[in-house]
Simulated scan of single mutants.
Amino acid sequence: MTARVFDQLPDGRDVHLVEVGEAPGPVLRLLTLGATVHDLEITGGDGVRRHVALGHGSSAAYLASGDYIGGTIGRYANRIRDGHLPLPDGDHTLGTHDRGHHLHGGPDGFDRRLWDLLDHDGHQARFGLTSPDGDQGFPGNLDVEVTFTVTDKAIDIAFTATTDRTTVVNLTQHAYLNLEGRDAGTIDGHLLRVPAQHYTPVDAEGIPTGDHAPVDGTPFDLREPQRLGAVLRTDHPQLRDARGIDHNLVVDAPADADGLHTMAVLTAPATRTELELRSDQPGLQVYTGNFLDGALPAVGGGLYRQGDGIALEPQLFPDSPHHPAWPSAVLEPGERYTARHQWVFRAAD
């Protein structure tokens, strides 16, 4: 399998596209810019092949976007309050660009970097990136890899990272999915189930206000499948502030022998297609495309607007450096950070 040139960055460097998988199973198209999920083609439960991941038509559009469409996110997915990172060796100041807070790795996060395509074949692609000491304010040289493996029913995404100095790491994938098709309109008709008894309330700037809270009686009670259109139109202050769901859910499902547990099940009744998301991470950030505004062209020349896709992002909890009781994002020299996500596609009942 040979990578081809997709286009060029402003400085003239080539961005490559590599394709893994084969029909009738999933076919995944990835860019070296951002180790980005540019396109995902699957066979729906109704037997129809569809492109179900949102994407932009050019590297310029990906770089101009603030929506992280399809990007690999790091060093720290989600927010860190005020860009303040406390570590045993002292406090560090991170790059900020989201209402004064650090978000998704900073103004120049991993989704904006040109990754090395380390190796690839018809079913797997492995990308590497070195983030130098002080990058976006983070201490330590960090060596990162992400590997995408495609089988006949599933896509496995594996992250690893090592450092030479105490730092924090929290990596995720930011694909936006629409199981009716990337140009089908909103995800309102999708059903979402998340096995979580608690969620993380946030303030108007997306920063956790304290500890997790029970989902009972809130729009975040997704323990049984809920139609997203109805959930998003619930009158609740957390949804009003975020213009939809942009929240962490604390997943309770037991892990299997591989250490993976069900994070979410997303179903599109219209196409009889179901996605089970499995991971080894404790939290799931659910983001319903609240700020997609049609400003940048999509693949094929259309425009993505609010709610046209959903991002389901397994990760550690937001702002965990300021919550010592939560799972730690600290990575020490000699340790290896690992995380796994798995997308399993099947026909819905």
Rank of each mutant, 00 (worst) to 15 (best):
D216H: 08
P24M: 07
H84N: 11
F138A: 09
L222S: 00
A255D: 12
R13G: 15
A161V: 09
P208I: 04
V215C: 00
D11A: 14
V150N: 12
T149K: 02
P269F: 15
H174I: 06
K153S: 08
A125G: 10
G90R: 06
V194T: 05
I69F: 11
Y287T: 07
G206D: 01
V265G: 02
E19M: 11
G283L: 03
F159P: 14
L54K: 01
W326T: 09
P327H: 11
R336G: 05
G109M: 00
T36S: 12
A35V: 09
L266D: 07
T234A: 00
R99G: 05
G128P: 03
Y287F: 06
N178P: 12
R346E: 08
P314Q: 02
L30G: 12
G301V: 09
P321L: 06
I310L: 01
H16T: 09
V48A: 15
G90W: 06
P107D: 13
H120P: 10
T273C: 00
L171Y: 09
A77C: 10
Q315L: 05
L63Y: 13
L192R: 07
L171W: 04
T93N: 14
V250F: 08
I187M: 00
F345I: 06
R336K: 13
S131N: 04
D108K: 07
H323R: 12
L129R: 00
G206Q: 00
R278A: 01
T93P: 03
A161S: 10
G128V: 02
L85S: 10
E41D: 15
E41Y: 12
G66Q: 08
H341V: 07
G134Y: 05
A3E: 14
I245R: 01
S58D: 06
T262G: 02
G105D: 13
A3K: 13
L228D: 04
D91E: 14
I69H: 06
D133V: 04
E335T: 07
T93Y: 11
T271F: 09
P324E: 10
G137K: 02
L118P: 09
L275F: 04
T72F: 09
R336S: 05
F291W: 07
G57R: 08
L87W: 05
I207V: 05
Q315R: 01
L222G: 00
P237D: 00
P297R: 13
D308Y: 14
Q8G: 14
D111S: 12
D116I: 01
H190F: 12
R182T: 10
D135Y: 05
A230W: 10
V146G: 06
E205H: 09
R13C: 13
I310W: 01
L114P: 10
K153T: 15
G83M: 06
